[in-house]
Design a protein around this nucleic acid. Structure first.
Length: 474
DNA sequence: CACAAATTCGC
DNA sequence: CGAATTTGT
């Protein structure tokens, strides 16, 4: 009988198309371990322990994974603490011959691996496999070996190594019976008082839920290119939280879409999958991308404005599209991508508040929180990223709201404005008092007045940007 | 529809 | 030296 093989799950909570599981199962009886590590991400690397919304997701995802493993006749081991300590401990407990894990790009992943290798020594190898991305991020390089900082040339180059390998089903497994496990409930991943997760029922965490979500998306995938920008429609895949937790492999998403749609129709969605890899690429190039501007010295004279920050977080800025997005985020752990850009622009430009405060709020509230993608998104909106951007862009929230047909979306998430018509709901302060009164809207009472005037906020942001550049030259 | 703003990347 | 995901007035 060959020796036990330890599979260490990180954010790849699935059995299908998982190279570490495949390799382990081919080598011997497997033990499957998840380590809830708040220590390493939360330590010297900048306090990026998992946020509250994602902890909710994790609880249900682990419940589903444990059930799936039990259906195969095995057991999921749950342990808590620094993975660099726990993984070697478990490996010794069960007498493992090797540890198997997927490659991830968060800075703490390498710290965990280094500690494990140092502890285990050469006799008990830590084997790392690709599979969390379309392409191993560090493999897409220019001819001179330099990494890419701009998406489009990166994407062109990546084509040479695409499509990803076809997905493989979960292997037949023999299980190693030993190993101690925590009780999941003892981790207290779910919110208690107050329980804000009432609106999270739209989600089904876990591998089966991810597959069902992908299947449901196939019905609307052909219209993705246009519909994805319209928050009032269900035009996006909503796969992001499943991908963030690795409940479905990105390669299987790729192949499912590429098989169903003609190449030209599939491209816009496959390109968005590419953005996920690109964010990982940026995080590898800039390990502190979540904490520091990609453009060194890109620091505006941020306002210290806790009341404004709080109004933004609660969805009470007086800009309906911003408030709708922020309330959707709080209620469901997710926000439509178009609205993320508008809300992020509003915080960093109109309110002139440090993008990292918004990034932190998203990290805590998003069920799809991903360090690289979140950082890249905020830096892109801010204009502080390493990628070249010729213009200092400031989204106009009212223009965007009308242009992308957000009226129904606003009615759904800002019900106090539900009586406003399609043309005036985007800027209720500009509607006639008669119309407002007919809709039951009293500004400053039932719904806030704008906390900042658009033109004034825009001018202030442009001035702050100009001042930063002037100081840079001086 | 034209034009403003206005820099760095990648080949 | 052409080009850069997603613009605003």
């Amino acid at each position: 009988m060959s020796a036990p093989q330890l599979v260490w799950f990180r954010n790849d909570l699935r059995l299908a198309d998982h190279a570490a599981i495949r390799a382990a199962a081919a080598a011997g009886p497997v033990a499957l371990l998840y380590v809830f590590d708040e220590v390493t991400p939360g330590g010297s690397l900048g306090s990026w322990a998992m946020g509250a919304a994602q902890r909710w997701w994790l609880h249900h995802s682990l419940t589903a994974l444990a059930r799936d493993i039990a259906a195969h006749g095995g057991r999921l081991l749950l342990r808590r603490g620094a993975a660099g300590v726990i993984v070697p401990q478990v490996a010794r407990e069960i007498g493992a011959a090797a540890v198997h894990v997927l490659h991830h790009v968060e800075p703490w992943a390498a710290v965990q691996e280094a500690a494990i290798k140092a502890d285990l020594g050469a006799d008990l190898p830590l084997n790392r496999y690709d599979g969390a991305f379309l392409i191993r991020p560090s493999q897409v390089r220019q001819d001179n070996g330099a990494p890419y900082k701009v998406f489009t040339p990166w994407w062109r180059r990546a084509q040479r190594q695409l499509p990803p390998p076809p997905p493989r089903p979960a292997p037949m497994m023999q299980f190693h019976a030993g190993g101690k496990s925590d009780d999941l409930d003892s981790w207290n991943l779910l919110p208690r008082t107050p329980d804000w997760s009432g609106g999270f029922g739209i989600w089904t965490p876990g591998e089966a839920g991810a597959a069902a979500r992908l299947k449901a998306f196939l019905d609307v995938a052909a219209g993705y290119d246009v519909a994805r920008n319209l928050p009032s429609q269900e035009g996006t895949s909503r796969l992001s939280p499943h991908l963030a937790m690795g409940e479905i492999s990105i390669a299987s998403v790729w192949h499912t879409i590429a098989d169903v749609l003609p190449a030209a129709a599939a491209e816009p969605f496959l390109r968005e999958l590419g953005w996920r890899d690109f964010a990982a690429n940026m995080l590898e190039i800039f390990p502190d991308h979540a904490d520091a501007p990609g453009r060194p010295g890109f620091e505006l004279a941020w306002r210290d404005a806790p009341a404004d920050l709080s109004a933004w977080q609660r969805g009470e800025t007086g800009y309906p599209i911003v408030d709708a997005g922020m309330r959707q985020l709080w209620a469901t752990g997710w926000m439509h991508n178009r609205v993320r850009m508008i809300a992020a622009s509003f915080l960093t430009k109109h309110l002139l508040i440090d993008w990292r405060l918004g990034e932190r709020w998203f990290w805590d509230c998003l069920v799809d929180a991903d360090l690289g993608a979140n950082a890249m998104g905020w830096q892109w909106v801010m204009g502080s990223g390493a990628e070249s951007a010729p213009f200092y862009r400031i989204f106009a929230p009212v223009t965007q709201s009308a242009k992308f047909g957000a009226a129904a979306y606003i009615r759904r998430w800002v019900p106090e404005l539900a009586g406003m018509d399609d043309s005036s709901i985007h800027a209720p302060w500009e509607a006639s008092p008669l119309l407002r009164s007919a809709a039951g809207v009293r500004l400053g009472s039932t719904y806030p007045l704008p906390i900042v005037d658009h033109a004034a906020g825009r001018a202030r942001a442009l001035a702050a940007h100009a001042a930063m550049k002037a100081a840079d030259e001086g």
